[in-house]
Design a protein around this nucleic acid. Structure first.
Lengths: 152, 152
DNA sequence: CAGAATTGTTAGACATGACTAACAATCGTA
DNA sequence: TACGATTGTTAGTCATGTCTAACAATTCTG
């Protein structure tokens, strides 16, 4: 179900009208699956949907969707940037894992990605620097300015 | 189903007799679920099982189980050691993710764990060293001996 | 070694989430 | 505006994998 919320949020960006068919294509399922998902999500007050009519996230649905998208993006970046996986595979894996990973691991993973993105050289002593970053929420001083940009 | 193979492999280590009840407890399901899983796995020739009798992996089942266990352990180590997650949560997450992650990401993740375990200080320039490790399958020379052991 | 306790199995129900086929509404265009 | 094409819905089926209740086999123990 989270996938449906995610798809609706993405398709609805910028006030665009969301169609059943688009959702079905984005998720690789048939239209009846979408209809029945919308029914369930309506019952849970996460989506507004009327027969043959508009499809829209409720505020609660939007909140859930943003959270899923956040998890998705952090995971995709981890696979793509930290592990060097191709974008397509990174997306697929993110899409699977976003639904099963624990909040704690998710949070740590997100921070890890932030770290390696902010500190591309890693510097000397990677794990302890990572610890530092985890504890203090910011990079050790000798890290942030010595990036990839060869600022000589 | 992979969880069942994994459980049977672990419970059967050292020629120990495997019981339905043990499996059910290890996986947190009721016994009938185990019985029906065993039936399916027997049909797939992954498990030998006769009514009220012994439970044993076939060679093919054992192979699958080892692969699952390998994935599980690499993931658990990643969460525990790289991300600093507690053991229990690391195990739970590993158990979920091991079934959905792509082979490519799994392989990279395993290598990543090997890398950070073998090269705990990370050295200067973590990502490029990681690239090097990926490409050559061995650590850059200036890495391996400068570990945690403070060998002064 | 017989009955009680435990372990294992069967049968059948239920939840999820997908599908196909058939029908209904809406849209686009002549 | 009406009719054909497209989109959406309903009804019903199927596959997974779980559960409970009832029954069967095995094991323990007096």
């Amino acid at each position: 179900m989270e996938d449906y919320l995610e798809a609706i949020a993405k398709l609805g960006e910028g006030r665009r009208v969301v169609k059943v068919k688009q959702i079905s294509q984005m998720l690789g399922v048939k239209m009846p699956s979408v209809t029945s998902a919308l029914k369930k999500l309506s019952e849970q007050e996460l989506v507004e949907h009327e027969r043959y009519g508009h499809i829209k996230l409720t505020p609660e649905g939007d909140e859930v969707a943003r959270d899923v998208i956040y998890r998705h993006e952090a995971l995709a970046r981890f696979f793509a940037q930290a592990l060097g996986i191709n974008q397509a595979t990174a997306e697929e894996d993110a899409c699977k894992i976003e639904h099963v990973i624990s909040p704690l691991s998710m949070e740590r993973l997100a921070k890890f990605v932030e770290f390696i993105e902010a500190c591309p050289l890693g510097g000397a002593n990677f794990p302890s620097r990572y610890e530092y970053y985890l504890e203090h929420g910011e990079l050790p001083q000798d890290c942030s300015t010595r990036g990839l940009k060869k600022r000589k």
